[in-house]
Design a protein around this nucleic acid. Structure first.
Length: 473
RNA sequence: GGCGCUAUCGUCUAAUGGUUAGGACAGAGCCCUCUCAAGGCUUAAAUACGGGUUCGACUCCCGUUAGCGCUACCA
């Protein structure tokens, strides 16, 4: 059985790139009948926060896909220690007593590739043991084999054959001087223990994979398969970051903007993956059926947003498509929740709500449009837009609308057909074009110059409210 | 600096040696129409550059350029 995992570290909110990685893993698991494992990689106690963990779950829950198993790395420290000891016992790691300088990164960039400190790598075992026993702090480093083998290679499911010379791989750390495992060790030890069969993750880990393969081998297990995903970047090509790009990088932004979670999942899937048959709008099942790692491409994908508009136009379009296409039965409860969240009492029964939602949704893009642009359908206090006011201010318009209101009082059935008949009869009788009355009625009923067919508006608003609004112009 | 990865319309992408280089979003126009959307139709828009290989390159190879990633006792 295939086993894949998503392993976020709780150092911030759920990033949209992380969300996409989660989705691809989930899709892969479902497509192959495998298991989706969620593992919280919280080995960096300095940077992890419970608030961040909560916001990651918040984002994941909104996506609504779920997972099969849940683990927390901080619960598995003993396993990581054992793994480090096993590797050390095999002579595949050594103690490095060099004191931390705090600027390792700067050093390596300034002086070229830093691979290892030969004094420490070759330190006699007795001497190493003596210093450790004396309590001298050390970092446990992997002893990258450079004589016994020349390269590490693997076949990436997305990027193809990969190979790196062992002379280009540094002696990376396994254990920090405080005894805590590094990401590389903890991640591989857990992946081995959890029997992860395929690791699907961001391309920023492609170079790390050589180290990971070395660790898996040192642990005596077969390395899993790897599939790396192209990164999501900003319009200027830079990696998306909270600091520079703000809320666009958090999935909760899209939730708060009224996106349907599935539509957003659909959008994210199209960034770096394609079903190759020109389909864009796909249901969850269609995504599961179509998803393969072979369909993933290799170039980074740009999330197309701007300062003025943080939402990618295609995401918005896709959302509007799903908004129109999804069953009204599923949409109506979401609309009801949104209305109630904004303090509007829903003046419809279930059937009435569904009818109204169905009538107005083709003009809307997100759930937020219902209480805002659709306010007149749900409340009696709604703004009159300037263009609508112009229509009402046309000479004779108000009188005609009030006359229509009276005429409709004699129309008990109030169907689209009967209302239309009444309106057209009145227009004929007064010698005005029906369109003038129709557009005036829409303006009076909704406060907007645009919207659905006026007769649909009449029935959606309902007889009593419609008559009152026309009579009150 | 070293190592690795990548490069098709503005953006997301299709085309794995032979197509007038296709689709979608965004843009422009037309149709439909009680308005606005939706929908339909039309239009503009791309193979980074330079060399090869080949009868034939978006596709394969080399180089250049650009971007990204890794190069931490972060993940």
């Amino acid at each position: 059985m295939q086993r894949v995992r998503f392993a976020p570290s709780p150092t911030g909110f759920l990033h949209i790139g992380s969300a996409r990685t989660f989705i691809f893993n989930w899709l892969y698991a479902r497509h192959n009948g495998g298991a989706m494992i969620l593992r919280i990689d919280d080995t960096d106690v300095e940077r992890n926060t419970e608030a961040s963990l909560a916001s990651i779950f918040e984002g994941l829950n909104w996506l609504g896909l779920g997972w099969d198993e849940l683990y927390r790395q901080s619960d598995r420290l003993a396993l990581h220690r054992q793994a480090a000891e096993a590797i050390f016992a095999k002579g595949l790691a050594y103690r490095d007593f060099t004191p931390a300088t705090g600027d390792e990164g700067a050093k390596s960039r300034a002086t070229g590739p830093w691979l290892f400190n030969s004094d420490m790598r070759e330190l006699a075992a007795a001497e190493s043991d003596r210093r450790a026993a004396a309590g001298e702090p050390f970092v446990l480093r992997f002893r990258v084999p450079r004589e016994s083998r020349t390269a590490v290679a693997f076949a990436d499911a997305v990027y193809g054959g990969q190979s790196k010379l062992t002379t280009d791989i540094e002696d990376f750390a396994l254990l920090r001087s405080n005894g805590a495992p590094t990401y590389h060790l903890a991640s591989c030890a857990d992946d081995a223990d959890l029997r992860i069969s395929s690791i699907i993750r961001g391309q920023d880990h492609l170079s790390n994979t050589f180290k990971h393969i070395l660790i898996f081998e040192a642990l005596g297990v077969e390395p899993p398969r790897f599939g790396h995903l192209p990164l999501l970047v900003a319009p200027d090509g830079a990696k998306l970051s909270k600091r520079r790009h703000g809320p666009v990088v958090s999935v909760t932004t899209y939730r708060d903007r009224g996106f349907l979670s599935h539509a957003y999942v659909n959008f994210l899937c199209l960034l770096g993956w394609s079903p190759k048959d020109n389909r864009e709008q796909l249901s969850r099942q269609e995504l599961i059926d179509a998803f393969t790692l072979e369909g993933v491409n290799r170039a980074n994908a740009v999330v197309n947003f701007s300062e003025e508009d943080p939402i990618d136009a295609k995401a918005l379009w896709l959302n509007s498509q799903h908004l129109r296409a999804m069953p009204v039965d599923e949409l109506a409860p979401l609309v009801r929740a949104e209305l109630e969240a904004t303090g509007l009492a829903v003046p419809y029964d279930e059937t009435g709500l569904r009818t109204t939602v169905d009538a107005i949704r083709s003009r809307f893009f997100t759930i937020k449009d219902f209480p805002i642009r659709g306010r007149a359908y749900f409340a009696d206090d709604f703004p009159i837009e300037a263009d609508a006011l112009d229509k009402l201010n046309k000479p004779g318009a108000r009188e005609l609308l009030r006359e229509l209101s009276e005429r409709l009082q004699a129309n008990p059935e109030f169907t689209e057909q009967s209302v239309e008949a009444d309106l057209r009869a009145l227009a004929d009788a007064r010698g005005v074009k029906a369109g003038v009355l129709i557009n005036g009625a829409r303006a009076a009923l909704t406060g907007q110059p645009v919207g659905p067919s006026a007769f649909t508006v009449f029935t959606a608003i309902g007889r009593d409210r419609a008559i009152a609004r026309l009579g009150g112009v």
